[in-house]
Write a protein that binds this DNA or RNA. Structure first.
Lengths: 364, 364
DNA sequence: CGTACCTTTGTGTGCGTGCACAGAATGGAT
DNA sequence: ATCCATTCTGTGCACGCACACAAAGGTACG
């Protein structure tokens, strides 16, 4: 029966056809209004817009994607990385998203650069632009170069998303990552519980070419010191710089430090390389040292299971990757409004709850 | 041009039409094979199945949902609850999912029962069955009655999902919730850090009609004791039963306990009612007591901000709700394979990282 | 050989939307 | 009034799939 009551119809989804009928125009006109195309008289436009608002019309995105049959090419610019690294999880999340939204005809091209060679970032950026992508995802690890690159994207009208760390003034379409300062603050609370009153804490830092690796690291440190200033002003703290690239050198630095500071039984790294210290402890059979770090890298996980890393703060890299692709789809295809700043949860992981944090499962 | 190279076509999505052409049959026949309907000769069926497997055909679920135009009614059976409660977040997740999958024409009907009146569960269950739903979500809080109810569902061929707690032998289509034993174990690790060596720990328990509220609570306790047995066998522990329904009575019990055990400065609840103790501490201006609990109820959050609850373990109720609806869609509409056991992360929340855990944002 | 009946296969329409194209209306110039 | 240009509006097909219906082929029986 065509003669359904209004009661029943209320539940039904409103279609373009319905809007057209109510506005006394054809679906073509409604379509033009919806996509703000030209060729509609002011009177019709206003009438249609009125009805749209009144009925709170939501297009059927599946029908829309089916009909428009466009292809979207996304591109991603990441630091190059090896197996078991942080960025691998980010990529995993992105490829999960690509396959989950494959019916939208999206594709993803990932380009890599050497985080410590600025030239390689620029070069990768140029290659990316050549492919003329519809949306870009990148991590603003190098502020200066990112700034330049983002200017080009803006000029071309290509939306870009930041993951992992943020530079708000370069206003990306969205940011997915952790609130670094607050995560440092939280880490401090936990480490403070681990630290005995009498002893002290050592901060292991990562130095490249004479400067700290990233803003992330700096903000985490800030948060850490903020907490300690408020809650444990008397606690002694040391900073020890490590260099990752020359393992022998780091080992010697650690030897020297612990020889001259035997009472220190607590430490933290504000980057993902806690395993450098954890593996050192393992090698020297020191199980009494309490260590914290960041990110569920394979080597960190192994240290946690072996007992030389107590806790790690995870920042859901897989979810970051997944969400950033989803965000581009929402923006470009479904024209949804995007939330610009999206902080990931600050997760505390120990050997006990680690099994529930490989967030892969969430998005099969 | 119709004459695309195979190279190009490889990237394209395979359609039913393609399968039909390659198998030398019509799309109707392929359709029949895909939906395992009758009326296909063994020869054709085999040929089509072969091609399907060979090309790993994945149907376009959007087109499929669009064409089939079926309506799905889901039903949900939950303990009744007041504002700011745990179940409210579960419901929030479910309604977010319903609106995010609204193009699949799903609807959700939620029924409530009194958790402590078994008869009301049965009555709500019967009302639910009358509406003849396509899928059911419930929390098996009462084992006996749930078992009966689930039998009925099985007989009717209606799939059901458990959230929050699990009874594997009633084999639900899927379970979304926390690994209770391991979460208790993890909680113990944290509380052990909070507890000074010299003092002891009190376990506040929730008693209804002479027995513990739920299996969840029991398993958490188990995990907690497991940890303590392994890592702090000497630590003294007490159990104090509370009754929630008579606040005056609880206050007296707490008074008595702390008068006779002034050295105890640490406690935990294995249900969501930590605020009973937190608010007591607030009232008596005791800030030196370390308290842990479960779930981000409004009253718990307030205690955390006031400083009388140190940590809470959260179990992502919103995500549980969202995922359970998503699961029914995947199973009934998209015919995807379902993962039967889905453990939520074991999240540790303090006042510092709480802002990042109202998981609403994730699914706008 | 015609008819009835069953099994197997092919075709056509519609789901809600995007978009190209055709058609109608308007206004101005001749 | 006629013609053309311009603006505005309506129609029809396509997207990939589900499902109803029609058609074709085969078998049995009078």
């Amino acid at each position: 029966m065509d003669a359904k009551t209004d009661m029943e119809k209320q539940q039904e989804r409103i279609r373009i056809k319905d809007i057209a009928r109510l506005a006394g125009v054809s679906v073509g006109t409604v379509d033009r209004v919806l996509h703000s195309r030209s060729g509609v008289s002011p009177a019709s436009r206003q009438k249609v817009e009125e009805i749209l608002k009144q009925l709170n019309y939501q297009p059927n995105m599946y029908a829309s994607a089916l009909a428009s049959n466009k292809k979207y090419a996304f591109a991603c610019l990441l630091p190059d990385h090896s197996e078991g690294d942080y960025w691998e999880d980010v990529e995993k999340g992105m490829s999960q998203a690509v396959s989950s939204f494959s019916d939208f005809h999206i594709s993803l091209d990932t380009l890599y650069y050497d985080q410590y060679e600025f030239g390689s970032f620029v070069e990768a950026g140029n290659r990316l632009l050549e492919s003329n992508p519809d949306g870009v995802i990148l991590s603003p690890t190098i502020e200066e170069e990112t700034s330049h690159f983002v200017c080009l994207l803006q000029r071309l009208g290509i939306p870009y998303i930041f993951i992992d760390s943020n530079i708000p003034k370069l206003n990306p379409l969205a940011f997915y990552g952790q609130h670094a300062q607050k995560s440092g603050y939280f880490a401090a609370r936990i480490l403070h519980m681990l630290a005995r009153e009498s002893s002290g804490i050592v901060l292991f830092r990562q130095i490249y070419e004479g400067r700290l690796g990233s803003n992330q690291q700096l903000h985490r440190e800030e948060g850490f010191y903020d907490y300690m200033r408020e809650h444990a002003p008397g606690l002694k703290m040391w900073e020890l710089n490590l260099y990752a690239k020359q393992p022998g050198q780091d080992e010697k630095l650690l030897d020297d430090f612990f020889r001259s500071h035997p009472q220190v039984n607590c430490g933290i790294t504000f980057n993902s390389k806690a395993y450098l210290v954890g593996e050192y402890m393992l090698k020297h059979h020191r199980k009494d040292f309490h260590l914290m770090g960041y990110d569920l890298l394979r080597r960190n996980v192994e240290c946690m299971k072996a007992g030389t890393i107590d806790f790690v703060i995870a920042q859901q890299p897989t979810m970051q990757g997944y969400n950033s692709i989803e965000c581009l789809c929402n923006h470009l295809i479904l024209k949804k409004k995007i939330k610009p700043c999206n902080y990931m949860p600050i997760n505390l992981i120990s050997a006990d709850n680690i099994d529930f944090y490989f967030d892969a499962h969430t998005y099969e």
